[in-house]
Amino acid sequence: MCLAIPGKIEDILNALPMERTGTVSFGGIRKEINLAFVPEADPGDYVIVHAGFAISKINATEARRIFDLLACDETDAPC
């Protein structure tokens, strides 16, 4: 239920603040997502999406921290 997945904003479809929506791509699968709660997120940004709403913009610097900590390459192929 609290499952939320990352996706990339491709474009903005409605720019009205309380009705802001955009196309978000989840590994190539595109969906119209409500962006009202992430006014700071623009096309090209990654957001976490739950129940049709983006709930947070992903911070790319913070996302790398765990790999710096483990001193490894995040681009290794997943198992």
């Binding site: 997945i5 590994g27 996302a63 765990i66 490894c72 290794d76 192929a77 198992c79």
Partner: peptide, 17 residues
């Protein structure tokens, strides 16, 4: 998918373990 698969690598999982 970006921000998903990189957090599922066996090699980093074992390092953290």
């Amino acid at each position: 998918m970006k921000y998903m698969h990189e957090y599922r690598q066996a090699v980093t999982i074992r390092q953290l373990a």
